[in-house]
C-alpha cells in the first residue's frame, strides 16, 4: 500500500550529525515533523523559522481584562453602598490603581499559562511519538511519511544512532502536527 503512513523516530547522540540531517529535512517543506531536543536550540530556530509565539496575545488580553476588572469591581462595590471612610472620596482611584495593578499581573500570568497550554497542545497523555532518550542527551526527529518514501528518509537519516519505525493504522495518521 503506497498511501499507508509510517512513523519514523530518529535519535541522534551526535549534535553535528543531527544538525546536518536537520538541514536536509528542513528544506522539505511538505514534511510535517517534530524536532525534539532536551533543551531549546537556537540552531533549530534558525533552520526552521517560526512566527512569534501567539502566547503573548493571551498575556496581553489577560492583562487588559485584569486591569478592567481591577477598576470596575472596586468601583462597583463602593457605589453599591457609598460610604466615606478615612476622609477619602467614595471612588478612590489612587487606591484602586493598586488593586487594578495586582489583577493585571494575576490575569496576565494566568492567561499566559493558558496560552502556553493552548499553543503547545498540552496537557496530553499519548506519548507514542516520543522517546525517553529525548529528555536525556539525545536529539532527534519524529515524523510520518508514506511508506514509499521510507528508504529515501532512511538515507537522509543514515547517521542516526537509532531509528524506530511504526506502521500507522490510520491513513491520516499525521503525527507531527499535534503540538503546533
Amino acid at each position: 500500500m503506497n498511501n499507508a503512513n509510517v512513523r519514523i523516530k530518529a535519535i541522534y547522540n551526535n549534535y553535528e550529525a543531527f544538525i546536518n540531517a536537520l538541514k536536509v529535512l528542513s528544506s522539505k517543506k511538505e514534511l510535517d515533523m517534530d524536532v525534539i531536543s532536551p533543551m531549546p536550540l537556537h540552531d533549530v530556530e534558525k533552520l526552521i523559522p517560526q512566527k512569534p509565539s501567539g502566547v503573548r496575545w493571551f498575556t496581553f488580553f489577560g492583562g487588559i481584562l485584569g486591569l478592567i476588572i481591577g477598576f470596575a469591581f472596586p468601583i462597583y462595590t463602593v457605589l453599591d453602598w457609598p460610604l466615606i471612610t478615612g476622609g477619602k472620596p467614595v471612588v478612590t482611584i489612587q487606591a484602586f490603581i493598586i488593586i487594578a495593578f495586582e489583577l493585571l499581573i494575576l490575569f496576565g500570568a494566568a492567561f499566559t499559562l493558558l496560552g502556553l497550554l493552548f499553543h503547545a497542545r498540552l496537557p496530553r497523555q499519548n506519548l507514542s511519538n516520543y522517546d525517553v532518550r529525548f529528555s536525556g542527551n539525545s536529539f532527534g526527529f519524529v515524523f510520518s511519511v508514506p511508506e514509499r518514501k521510507i528508504n529515501e528518509m532512511k538515507n537522509i537519516l543514515q547517521d542516526a544512532d537509532d531509528i524506530i519505525t511504526d506502521k500507522l493504522s490510520t491513513e491520516s495518521g499525521r503525527i507531527g502536527n499535534e503540538s503546533r
Binding site: 517534530d34 531549546p40 530556530e45 517560526q50 509565539s53 498575556t59 496576565g108 498540552l122 499519548n126
Partner: peptide, 25 residues
C-alpha cells in the same frame, strides 16, 4: 510534565511564555 515532549514548537512557545512570566513577575 503534562505530556511535555520537547518539540521545537513546544520550546518556541515555552520560551516566549517564560519570558512573559518573567516580565510579569
Amino acid at each position: 510534565a503534562m505530556g511535555w515532549r520537547g518539540t521545537h514548537r513546544q520550546w518556541h512557545h515555552y520560551e516566549t511564555a517564560y519570558l512573559l512570566f518573567a516580565a510579569l513577575a
